[in-house]
Design a protein around this nucleic acid. Sequence first.
DNA 1: GGCAGCATATGATTGAAATCATATTCCAGC
DNA 2: GCTGGAATATGATTTCAATCATATGCTGCC
Lengths: 187, 187
Amino acid sequence: MLPEPYDLLPTTARQSQTIAAGDVLFRQGARTLGLYVLKTGRVHLERVGPNGERLIIHRATSGTSFAEASVFSERYHCDAIVMDAGELVRIDKSAVLAAFANPDFARAYGRQAAQQVQAHRQIVEIIGIRRAEDRVMAGIVAGLLDGTVVDLAARLQLTHEATYRALRALVEAGRVNNPSRGTYRLT
Amino acid sequence: MLPEPYDLLPTTARQSQTIAAGDVLFRQGARTLGLYVLKTGRVHLERVGPNGERLIIHRATSGTSFAEASVFSERYHCDAIVMDAGELVRIDKSAVLAAFANPDFARAYGRQAAQQVQAHRQIVEIIGIRRAEDRVMAGIVAGLLDGTVVDLAARLQLTHEATYRALRALVEAGRVNNPSRGTYRLT
DNA sequence: GGCAGCATATGATTGAAATCATATTCCAGC
DNA sequence: GCTGGAATATGATTTCAATCATATGCTGCC
């Protein structure tokens, strides 16, 4: 099943496809087809700077959508390149635009988008915390430690070494529990 | 005039108010009234962690909206505290929810939200760049240097000193032009 | 016109996270 | 049940941004 709000769209609006590493889903300047929901694998969105630098815009991970803004645009503004093989669903631009006439879809979209914006703002604030220990603590408080420590480290823009060290310091300070290897929770 | 998409709402949905430093716009747990558009001043959104830590969720700046997700929620999930005096507009939750029945509003909302999500993802990617020089370069390529260097530094989560040094290095490397004191642009 | 405050700018020192290295545990797949 | 790869974990070293310090230019305002 697709994540909200795209589960409300007719099945005709979706198109599943498998992707292999190196595949290019779209190129900067190409006509927009719609957005994507990544089931498995990894996809990078990249843009080439004026002097030829490759600038990563976004790294899409399993279970998330990307290129949502393409629904409102004529052309893609970046390249989408598959890093790891997997599966995705393409969702028709026209179907999404049409669905905005349905208030239920519109509200579901709005809710989802507003929550995502909020989550991103919080991430930016947390990443702005300089001390690794404080940053990891904030990340845990924000509920970012749902998967592995390696995942947490990536979300916090820290190396996993720094994250492990911060976790140990937090455990030693009694602010975090470490009931078993690899599991940490708030005291 | 209000930023998109709130300019499409009836004027009855808005309520202007002046705010003073220290004012509390809402508290965590309070019934939601709606979202806010900050005209001038500064507002912090904060949440108290389980162990009493104050965690800043977001720092709203002039011209931006905040608490958008409250439209879809019964209770505010954080505190909103005025840091610097200014003016804002409160926008009724019910008016926004009703407006989603208007496809024009819904699409404008969707477009705005999708673009904001995209911008935030890019910021997160850029902030993840370790070397100050590369980070500043990416920031410039992304068009983040529209105001002062101090503003750029804040957006990049760098100190302004590090940002100035990076800019000088980029100028010396011929990657950035510094036609006059305080102005930098891509070569 | 002078003063306060902020942006610009850069040098010296410090500190903390990145990097490099290494070991163990866990799990999936053969 | 073995093997390879990833997560967990921690130590040693290096690097580079933060911090502290200082100076100048610019702007608004009293």
